[in-house]
Design a protein around this nucleic acid. Structure first.
Length: 291
DNA sequence: GCCCAGGTGAAGC
DNA sequence: GCTTCACATGGG
């Protein structure tokens, strides 16, 4: 067993850390003094990225870094994923625009709760809501920051004990009853997030969609960003725009049609392709406000 | 003021 | 099956 340390460096290839942590998968990462600062489970962590490596710094000595390598998916062969994409012009452009973008492997509960809060919200606002929720209900955890206290993501049990009004005070509006009911279902043991690991993607999706406030899109996000079902293909407003503009320029296909198209067209790593399309559309929109 | 945001659920056909 | 609407809140 390795000696406990507070820092570690991993060699990486084709890993765009900023694109990955800032692409609307996770909502707690902050860019502070040329580094990404965030919370993974009970760990506060600061990440710096160089040409061929990622360096992590924690608050307390660590022997087993699996929680981090798993979260960042450092063992994934990105080339193999990119090679599985369809060879068409839209995918070439999207990959070229953000090569090195990765999918994270997040905690299912945090991912589920965060995306329940995401509906018809901009990413900056989702961040704000999640931040308020953690500050108000999350357990304090050790940090190397002197300026602020840092909290873990609140447990289902803690949120289950909250009132709807308390949740609404975190600016989540009409999403409050959904989050509360979902937290209670999980805290009660009526719903078992761990059991989903054994399911097929389709069954796991059906299960997730039984939860209040969880429809097809949010279920697909959880399948993709937490459970690692890489065929899951969340279709939000940006991906819908991407598919319509890039693949159906002068028609207006239904959402159902787009789902069928995504299943047939993008292959076993469709979810990865989706994230490239999503990020491409968003960054392009930022650079070219007219389009 | 307006329109939009990593949507969902209920109600109407 | 589909379409329409309400639902809070804040950014541009």
């Amino acid at each position: 067993m390795a000696k406990p340390t507070v820092t570690v460096t991993f060699p990486v290839r084709d890993y765009d850390l900023s694109a990955t942590l800032d692409s609307g998968q996770a909502f707690r990462w902050q860019w502070v003094d040329h580094a990404w600062v965030g919370i993974i489970g009970p760990h506060w962590v600061r990440l710096k990225s160089d040409a061929g490596s990622i360096t992590a710094e924690t608050a307390e000595p660590v022997t087993d870094w699996h929680w981090l390598t798993q979260y960042l998916q450092l063992d994934l062969d990105l080339d193999q994923v990119l090679r599985s994409f369809p060879e068409d012009e839209p995918m070439r452009v999207a990959v070229q625009a953000c090569r090195g973008l990765r999918l994270l492997r997040q905690d299912p509960w945090e991912c589920l709760a965060s995306f329940i809060l995401s509906s018809t919200k901009q990413i900056v606002q989702i961040r704000q809501i999640v931040s308020l929720l953690c500050a108000r209900f999350g357990e304090p955890i050790p940090t190397r920051l002197h300026s602020a206290t840092v909290n873990a993501f609140p447990t289902p049990l803690r949120l289950a004990r909250a009132s709807e009004a308390e949740l609404r005070s975190c600016k989540m509006g009409f999403r409050a009853p959904y989050l509360l009911a979902t937290a209670r279902a999980i805290a009660d043991g009526q719903f078992d997030l761990k059991a989903l690991w054994a399911h097929s993607p389709e069954n796991a999706r059906d299960e997730l969609m039984r939860l209040p406030g969880v429809g097809r899109k949010i279920a697909d996000c959880v399948l993709l960003f937490a459970y690692g079902f890489q065929s899951a293909f969340p279709v939000d407003v940006w991906v819908m725009k991407a598919l319509r503009q890039l693949y159906f320029p002068r028609r207006r296909p239904s959402l159902r049609r787009l789902h069928r198209f995504s299943e047939q067209h993008f292959g076993p790593n469709a979810g990865y392709a989706q994230q490239y399309l999503f990020h491409y559309m968003r960054t392009r929109a930022k650079k070219l406000p007219a389009v």
